[in-house]
Design a protein around this nucleic acid. Structure first.
Length: 440
DNA sequence: TCTGGGGTCCTAGGACCC
DNA sequence: TCTGGGGTCCTAGGACCC
């Protein structure tokens, strides 16, 4: 924790709804709800007019409609949100090089790196007011709530205290007095489960939380969370403002209006999602080793299955096949409401293609053709054929061994076998069409 | 017809290696 | 012939955030 109030947190007010009201004057002053409009949609953002009717983020759209039937229900225009967000982040970066975006509508700014004569409360207050004015300017009318304090934690709490269109600067030294009367739920990281655990031992406020020893807290909430909360209860937070945070995973998921029961359809949907994940990996120059599927059953039970390759991939065919294979192990007979595919274990480099082709070339050539029996030709995802086992694809290779998973569209979870990489029974599978470029 | 989609981080158990 | 530890990787699930 710093001795001066030099961490700023900025939060754009009802951001998605505010962009809609800005761009569509007929919506100004009226309740606007942005979110999923389908049968199983939830509210992403409600304008303050809609909040007066009890509409809240994360509420089902169905309930929002019953609370506020005359609201405008919009599915969202993410390009507009992103574009507006970039203008705000650009403004923040012009003020300090240390800007950490948390989402499209939120960021931390380190004021130690800003051009300020000093970091006294009156100075940062004037600076923050001017920044809020410039946000309105640069966004054509959107307002922001800002908090400034001696840490990320305090700045974030402060920006919440006078919403919307407010500013709160917490004077150094007053943090703990501010926190004590507050409910534990104001602490970021304290959600429903933690709140309930604390409630059961009679803890509701930060002041009560302060009475718990670190050991007790760890016993109650686990090592990481317990230790973390022990310190936050005392306003102890030394986290730096981190401008660059690297991506750890990329995923696509979808909830369907009616439960799925057709396995072939599920495989088709996973295949399409895998393609979207691969495209996004490729655009960002990423590849990853672990493919995970997510399946939410009719009763909301959520399952995940994952599998890790020997080397990273960004190939749509490999990701899709792994996804379908993982699905094969699951009983989905009761119906599925959500399917998803993700890739993690990311490397910021793409495995060098054996033919020196670019990722774009793979888009046109989903089936890779490899020469017969030459060494070092087995890359994950390649189609191969075994004299006895039939057609399969390379699961992994290395140290002279190639592992092949045999599958057909009907039986995705085929057996896995390993062979010496120069086993003559194993050959590259060729598409039925003659390919003059393939050579021998 | 309650309950999105994109993420991050943590835990716990088992495998495996030294 | 009884029973080490530590470290790392992988998997599944859960809590939480916006």
């Amino acid at each position: 924790m710093r001795t001066e109030a030099s961490v700023l947190h900025l939060d754009l007010d009802a951001f998605f709804a505010a962009v809609e009201q800005r761009d569509k004057p007929s919506l100004r002053g009226k309740p606007v709800v942005v979110g999923g409009v389908g049968g199983r949609g939830v509210v992403s953002t409600a304008s303050y007019e809609a909040r007066r009717y009890g509409v809240r983020s994360a509420m089902s759209t169905r309930e929002a409609r019953s609370r506020c039937p005359h609201a405008a229900f919009l599915s969202g225009r993410f390009h507009a949100y992103r574009e507006t967000s970039e203008r705000v982040m650009g403004l923040l970066r012009s003020v300090s090089p240390l800007v950490e975006p948390l989402s499209l509508d939120e960021a931390f700014v380190d004021l130690r790196q800003a051009d300020l004569p000093d970091l006294a409360v009156p100075t940062v207050t004037a600076f923050a007011q001017d920044l809020r004015r410039r946000v309105v300017e640069v966004t054509d009318g959107l307002t922001a709530s800002v908090g400034v304090g001696s840490s990320k934690f305090i700045a974030k709490i402060a920006s919440d205290l006078d919403k919307p269109d407010g500013l709160v600067v917490v004077a150094p030294g007053t943090e703990r007095d501010l926190l004590r009367p507050m409910n534990v739920t104001v602490i970021p990281g304290v959600g429903p489960a933690t709140t309930e655990r604390l409630r059961r031992v009679g803890i509701h406020t930060v002041e009560e939380l302060e009475t718990v020893t670190e050991d007790e807290m760890v016993r109650l909430l686990g090592n990481a969370h317990g230790t973390w909360l022990f310190h936050l209860a005392r306003a102890q937070d030394d986290r730096a403002v981190e401008p660059e945070r690297e991506t750890k995973s990329v995923s696509v998921e979808g909830t369907y209006d009616t439960d799925l029961t057709d396995r072939t359809l599920m495989e088709g949907l996973l295949t399409r999602q895998a393609g979207e994940v691969a495209t996004r990996l490729g655009k960002n120059g990423l590849s990853g080793r672990t493919v995970t599927i997510k399946v939410r059953l009719h009763d909301f039970t959520t399952l995940s299955r994952s599998s890790t390759l020997p080397s990273p991939t960004d190939s749509r065919t490999t990701i899709a096949r792994m996804a379908r294979t993982l699905l094969a192990d699951l009983d989905t007979s009761g119906g599925v409401r959500l399917l998803g595919v993700g890739v993690s274990g990311l490397a910021d480099w793409v495995q060098e293609d054996l033919f020196g082709e670019t990722a774009e070339a793979e888009e046109e050539l989903p089936e890779i053709v490899v020469p017969h029996h030459s060494r070092r030709t087995w890359a994950p995802g390649m189609d191969v054929e075994h004299e006895e086992m039939g057609r399969g694809w390379v699961w992994g290779s290395g140290r002279g061994v190639v592992t092949v998973r045999f599958e057909t569209a009907q039986t995705p979870a085929g057996p896995v076998r390993s062979y010496a990489e120069d086993d003559p029974a194993l050959s590259a599978w060729r598409p039925p069409e003659p390919d003059p470029a393939a050579g021998g």
